[in-house]
Amino acid sequence: MENTSSFFFELSGLNISLPNRRIYLGVALTSYAVTVLVNLTLVVTVATEKALHQPMYVFLANMCVNGVCGASTFYPKLLHDLAPGAAPGAAPGAAPGVASISYAGCLLQMCGIYSYSFCEYTSLTVMAYDRYVAICRPLQYHAVMTRAMVTRLLALTWALPLLETAVGIVLTARLPLCGNRLFKFFCTNWEVVQLACAAANTTPNNVYGFLLLLSHLLQTLLVLVSYVFLVRAAVRSHADRRKFVQTCLPHLVALLVFASSTAFDALFSRYGRRLPGTRTLSSALAAEFLVVPPLVNPIIYGIKLQQIRAPFTRFFSRSALFTRTRFCRQDARG
């Protein structure tokens, strides 16, 4: 592969007949719209409510911003491919009805998806540290979680994932490719590495991939160990138990769902591709970490945290009241 500007990948994971395409388009568009709505609503709520200008809610809003970024690297391409006027099969030799993506577009999508994934891990780790200090060292919380510390942790949640992603993209971009068929409906690093020519040296990609997988598994283990201390601290008093249930359980559920789905997808992409009848399962689980966490996280936190649930309720009550008032005025004028 010498001319990357004219190179296209065939996304064989998206091969939908025209009658079904409108149904999937409606589901994807609704999911994307709801994801953006609930995340931005929570971000605006945290930004406008002075009572929520605390580290825990700032980190939560940061995670919601990352969720919108992750969804925006996945849904627009999917919606374009599902649109009735789209022309799939632009890749040379691609089968009719199969979507495609340019080489540069694939690298850009991978950059967005992996930055989102790594940022999600880092955000969950930072939030676990914040909860550990709040529950296990409550008297030192304000001395530890200063504005400067919060700023540094926020910078870490973005700088480290971007660095991890940049190294992976550079290692992949150097490989000569001897194929163009990807078995998913979006670009992943391992799928592209699998298309490298036989003479290409993919050892650095393999080593770096295993190092990333190991580091994020250790990150998850570190968070789980911190929860052992949180549980031990929470049993001391009713107030600590209440704080643990309200602020830590949603975080733990979000962490376990995201970690299990990403770990399974990483291992399945490497070792399970040749198993019969598993391509649909692989594609569904691959998309799960891009669809479910950004959609569910703000809803879970909004339901469990009274400090967020109350502004949420007021916001939607005002919106509903404004809508009813406007329609009443229009009816009166008519």
Rank of each mutant, 00 (worst) to 15 (best):
S215W: 08
S215Y: 08
H216F: 14
H216R: 15
L217Y: 13
L217W: 11
L218P: 07
L218H: 03
Q219C: 15
Q219D: 13
T220S: 10
T220F: 00
T220D: 02
L221S: 05
L222Q: 05
L222I: 06
L222G: 07
V223N: 04
V223M: 12
L224N: 07
V225A: 14
S226F: 06
Y227W: 14
F229G: 03
F229H: 08
V231W: 04
V231R: 01
R232G: 03
R232H: 00
R232C: 07
A234V: 07
A234H: 04
V235E: 02
V235L: 03
R236P: 07
R236A: 11
R236H: 15
S237N: 01
H238N: 11
H238S: 13
H238V: 14
H238W: 04
H238T: 13
A239Y: 10
A239T: 15
A239W: 07
D240F: 00
R241F: 00
R242L: 12
R242I: 07
K243I: 02
F244L: 15
F244A: 12
F244K: 09
V245Y: 12
Q246G: 08
T247R: 11
L249Q: 09
L249C: 00
L252G: 00
V253G: 02
V253A: 10
V253Q: 00
V253D: 02
L255N: 07
L256S: 14
V257F: 11
F258R: 10
F258Q: 11
A259D: 09
S260T: 15
S261N: 09
S261W: 08
A263E: 13
A263W: 10
A263Y: 12
A263T: 14
F264G: 02
F264L: 02
D265S: 15
A266C: 11
L267A: 12
L267R: 07
L267D: 09
L267T: 09
F268D: 09
S269D: 08
S269L: 07
S269E: 08
S269G: 06
S269T: 04
R270G: 11
Y271V: 05
Y271Q: 01
Y271H: 14
G272L: 11
G272Q: 11
G272T: 10
R273V: 10
R274T: 06
L275Q: 09
L275N: 09
P276I: 10
P276H: 01
P276F: 12
G277W: 10
T278I: 05
T280G: 10
T280L: 12
T280R: 13
L281P: 04
S282E: 13
S282M: 14
S282V: 03
S282F: 14
S283D: 11
A284G: 05
A284P: 02
A286I: 00
A287H: 08
A287S: 13
A287E: 08
E288M: 12
E288W: 13
L290Y: 02
L290R: 08
L290I: 10
V291S: 01
V291C: 03
V292N: 06
P293Y: 04
P293Q: 05
P294I: 08
P294W: 01
P294C: 09
L295K: 11
L295P: 13
V296W: 05
